[in-house]
């Protein structure tokens, strides 16, 4: 009998919601993460430090501040949120999509840092070689730079995913605690701790969180090792 069937409906709901929210947070922010990392690693422009600071801001701000800022911007009456609702009928606040955005914003600096370091580690000489072999800059990026930076990109993705799984402050501020919509693992756990006599249930959620986070780290380690082996073999 597998573990899945021993989970209570509440646990199952929180776990699958956490995976959904974190998965979308990472997938959705990855292209922007790569772009930002590339700009930071390879471009020089006035205001670069400001841009760098802006990207790192969620890392040092209290998550509640991030959540509140998101609410102001993306709430149905917010500057961007209002526009999204009026034109496309999209509501982010108090939905799982909003939770994904909150997670993405908070995890973004970690992702960018890892990818940026990976890009900086790629030998520019190899890119030059690709250019002399007839590859334009964009093709060179996808056929040489990205494959070589892949272990670092993967590390960034896992880091961001793990950070998204544990996201709490910005999420609860922006999208609150709505069962089946925004009640992810940490929020469900927090809710349980507010009710007396639910120690066992809370402990189970803790264990689930640990298992999921550990599985993610293990998967990244195995993938990274396999990539390294491919390059050396």
């Amino acid at each position: 009998m597998s573990l899945w069937f021993t989970l209570t409906p509440l646990e199952r709901e929180a776990l699958s919601l956490s995976l959904l929210v974190s998965g979308w947070a990472v997938v959705g922010s990855l292209p922007f993460g790569i772009l930002a990392a590339w700009v930071l690693a390879r471009r020089d422009f006035p205001g670069k430090s400001l841009f760098d600071g802006l990207i790192h801001l969620p890392l040092v701000l209290p998550p509640v501040v991030v959540g509140y800022a998101l609410l102001v911007l993306f709430g149905r009456k917010g500057i961007i949120g209002g526009w999204l609702y009026d034109w496309f009928g999209i509501t982010l606040a108090f939905t799982w999509k909003g939770a994904a955005i909150a997670s993405a914003v908070v995890a973004f600096p970690l992702m960018v840092r890892a990818i940026r370091m990976a890009l900086e580690g790629v030998d520019r000489g190899l890119e030059q070689a690709a250019r002399t072999l007839g590859c334009g800059p964009i093709r060179t990026f996808f056929s040489v730079t990205m494959p070589l930076a892949m272990p670092g990109v993967l590390a960034g993705v896992i880091l961001a995913f793990a950070r998204s799984l544990s996201e709490f402050g910005a999420t609860i501020t922006f999208v609150s605690n709505i069962p089946g919509e925004t009640r992810t693992l940490p929020i469900a756990l927090y809710a349980l701790t507010q009710v007396p006599g639910t120690d066992d249930a809370a402990l189970r959620l803790c264990i689930i969180s640990v298992v999921v986070a550990f599985a993610a780290l293990l998967a990244s380690e195995i993938l990274a090792r396999r990539m390294r082996a491919r390059m050396e073999g």
Partner: peptide, 19 residues
Amino acid sequence: PPEARRLGYVFQEHRLFPH
């Protein structure tokens, strides 16, 4: 740009693509 010049370049260090 280099990719439009059609010149072969053998570098001092081989610069082969490790992947």
